[in-house]
């Protein structure tokens, strides 16, 4: 036995959404994403901590291990700039959304294009490193590199796929403001965690 629609409307009149009990402090989509990002931060923090302990336990001249390929610092620095630019353009898209959802479509697509460029360049870098003999089985150096950077790449791929679908919905005017905010927050996480990984793993 449900409450008739007319009665539900009456209940809403008695308890308007702006009342103290019903007001929304944080939109559900954003809160859910914040909690998810919190778990993701801990995942990367755990991996970085394990890497730091193992690296600190090695002799100074044994890291990176002699005979193993060196990571391309300059190329990845450029790639880092690409990803940071992508984050900046996404932030711009968020601001444009306030002027009308259709105005944010192009910046979101530009941000995604920069994200895809980041992934392609990283794929090129990985292919080179694998060709030079750096693999997961090559030792702790290779294991940590592919584990940490690979986990980030996986997040970037998933984020780009989700944002591609979101862009389609954004163009159709079907994406809610809070949903857009939550998705942007995830992209900011993917962008924001990368400089930390670059600093820890590459430098």
């Amino acid at each position: 036995m449900g409450i008739p629609v007319s009665d539900k409307r009456d209940l809403r009149l008695i308890h308007p959404a702006s009342s103290r009990e019903d007001r929304q402090i944080i939109p559900s989509e954003v809160l859910g994403m914040v909690l998810f990002i919190g778990t993701e931060v801990m995942l990367f923090a755990g991996m970085i901590s394990a890497y730091t302990v193992v690296r600190a336990g090695m002799p100074v001249d044994a890291w990176p291990p002699p005979g193993q390929p060196r990571l391309p610092i300059m190329l990845t620095a450029f790639n880092t700039l690409l990803l940071l630019a992508s984050g900046g353009v996404m932030w711009h898209a968020g601001r444009k959304y306030a002027e009308g959802f259709e105005k944010s479509v192009k910046p979101v697509m530009a941000s995604l294009a920069l994200g895809v460029a980041f992934l392609l360049l990283q794929g090129y870098e990985w292919a080179n490193l694998l060709g030079e003999g750096l693999t997961m089985q090559a030792g702790p150096y290779g294991s940590f590199f592919f584990l940490i950077v690979g986990t980030h790449a996986l997040h970037a791929i998933i984020a780009i796929l989700i944002l591609s679908v979101a862009t389609y919905r954004l163009r159709a005017g079907e994406l809610s403001e809070h949903g857009f905010t939550a998705l942007r927050a995830f992209w900011y996480f993917v962008v924001g965690v990368w400089p930390v990984l670059y600093w820890q793993v590459y430098l």
Binding site: G38, M42, S49, G57
Partner: peptide, 24 residues
């Protein structure tokens, strides 16, 4: 994981423990 008894390893353990405790 106590495979190395160096001072840097000890510092890394303390640092990462503090980091992982304070971050959440």
């Amino acid at each position: 994981v106590c495979f190395s008894a160096t001072e840097s390893n000890r510092g890394a353990f303390i640092g990462t423990t503090a980091f992982l405790t304070l971050l959440p």
